[in-house]
Design a protein around this nucleic acid. Structure first.
Lengths: 228, 228
DNA sequence: GCATGACTCGTACATCGTATGAGTCAACTT
DNA sequence: AAGTTGACTCATACGATGTACGAGTCATGC
C-alpha cells in the first residue's frame, strides 16, 4: 500500500528520486512547489483564481497528480496561508526595553503581510492555527508579560490585540476590493442624510488613511491595556 | 420585456397577484419568503447548506423561479446577512447618560446576533454595508461624540471598535467550529513546549470564557478611547 | 379577443473538487 | 536475473453547483 507524504508525514525522504527527466523546465512535483505556485495564482487572481486544474496546468502536471502530495484543496489553502505569515522579528538593535514598539512592529507586520496577499484575509476566519501564527502569539504573550500585564489579564489582552488586528485587516482588505461601493455608500449617506447624519458628516466611509487609523486605534488599545 | 423587481426595484406592486392557488401550503414566491427560507437553511447547515436547488425545493418551486425575484446567489446572501443585523436599541429607561453602557450593549448585541447565525461571520468580510450596519455605526458615532471623544479621534475610535467586534466575532465563530482542533493545538503546544512556553502555560487556547474575554477587552479599548 | 407583462420552470452547459484504478519506473530482495 | 514493492503520475468519470436560455402559464387592460 502506498503511503502518502501528506499531513504530518515525511514528505520525500530519498535524496534524488526523479533522475529520469532532469529537464530544468519541469522540476519534480513537490509540496513546496505546489504551495509556491498556488501563491502565484492566488496573488494574481484571488481566491477564485485557484483551481486544482489551473494549479496543475501551471505546474505542467495532471490534476490528480497533485493529490499525491496534498490531501485536498483545503490543505493547499492552509499551507498557502501559513506561508504568508512567518515573522522574522523586529529590526535588531532596537533598545530591547521598548515593549510597545515591539508589539506595534509585529502587529503592523502581521497586517501588512496579509494585505500583501488579500485573499489571505478571507481565508483566516476558518482555518486552524499554523506554526507561524502560534509563534506570533507566543511573542506577543512574552512581550506583554514582560511589560507588566497581569497574568489574570494576559489572555484577554492577547485576544484583544488579535481581535483588533484581524478585524482591521479583514475590513481593510474587503473595502479595498469594493472601493466604489464605499464611495456610493457615502454619497447615499450624505444625500439622504436623514438617517445617518453623524457618520455622514464625519466622512467615516471616505477616510482612507487606513494605516494611520490602524496605528491610532492600536495606540488606544495599548493605552487601555497598560495604562500609565 | 419583463421587468424584474430585483435590486432597488419595486418588488411586487399589485395587491393579490396570485389568486389561482390559494392553498396556504404554498404561498406565492417573494423576496421575503426566499430570504426567510435561506435563513432556515443557513442556520441548519451553514454556508454549504444553502444551495439554489435546496432553497427552491424547500420553497416548493423550481430553481429558476428564484431568479425572477433575486439577482443571484450573492444577492440572497447579502439579504440574509443584513436581515440578521437589525438593532432595536438598548432596553429603554436606562439612565441616558451612561454612554459606555449603551456602547457595550450595542456591541455585545452585534456580536451575539452574528453568533446566533455563525455563517454570517464568514460572510461579513466581503459584503457591502447594509442599512442595519450603517445604523449601528451611526449610533456608535453619535454616542461617542456625545461622550466627549474629540472629532479628530472619532473615526479612528469607531473603526477601532468595529475592528475589535469583527475580529472577536469572526474568531469566536471559527473556533467554535473547530473545537477539537483547538484542543489538539493546545496539547501539541504543551508537549513540545519548547517553541511556545508562554502561551502553553497560560492555556491561551483552552480558555473558553469567550464572553468574559470579549467584555474585558472591550473595556480595555474603551478605557483607551475615553480615559479618565 | 387579443396583446402584454408578471411570473414559473425544464433543460442544458460549463466548471468545480475529487474517487477510482490503471500505468510507469527506480530501487530493493532473493 | 527475475520479481516485488512502493513512489509517483494521470486519464476518465461522477456528482454537484450556479445560472443562461427560452418556452410555457395566466390574469389583466385594451
Amino acid at each position: 500500500m502506498a503511503t502518502k507524504p501528506s499531513g504530518a508525514g515525511s514528505k520525500r525522504a530519498r535524496a534524488a528520486p526523479q533522475p529520469a527527466q532532469e529537464a530544468p523546465g519541469e522540476p519534480p512535483l513537490s509540496r513546496d512547489r505546489i504551495v509556491a505556485t498556488a501563491l502565484e495564482l492566488l496573488d494574481a487572481d484571488g481566491l477564485d483564481g485557484l483551481t486544482m486544474r489551473r494549479l496543475a496546468d501551471r505546474l505542467g502536471a495532471g490534476v490528480m497528480s497533485l493529490y499525491w502530495h496534498v490531501d485536498n484543496k483545503e490543505d493547499v489553502l492552509d499551507l498557502a496561508l501559513d506561508s504568508v505569515l512567518d515573522y522574522r522579528g523586529p529590526p535588531q538593535l532596537d533598545k530591547p526595553e521598548d515593549w510597545r514598539a515591539e508589539v506595534v512592529h509585529m502587529l503592523e507586520d502581521w497586517r501588512a503581510s496579509m494585505l500583501r496577499h488579500p485573499w489571505s484575509t478571507s481565508l483566516l476566519p476558518r482555518r486552524a492555527l499554523g506554526r507561524n501564527i502560534l509563534s506570533r502569539l507566543e511573542l506577543l504573550s512574552k512581550t506583554l508579560s514582560g511589560a507588566g500585564v497581569a497574568d489574570a489579564d494576559l489572555n484577554a489582552a492577547i485576544w484583544s490585540l488579535w481581535n483588533y488586528v484581524m478585524g482591521a485587516t479583514i475590513t481593510r482588505a474587503s473595502f479595498d476590493v469594493s472601493n466604489e461601493d464605499r464611495a456610493a455608500a457615502q454619497q447615499r449617506l450624505e444625500q439622504l442624510s436623514g438617517p445617518y447624519p453623524t457618520i455622514g458628516r464625519s466622512r467615516l466611509l471616505l477616510d482612507d488613511d487606513w494605516d494611520g487609523a490602524f496605528r491610532k486605534g492600536l495606540g488606544f488599545l495599548l493605552d487601555g491595556l497598560a495604562p500609565g
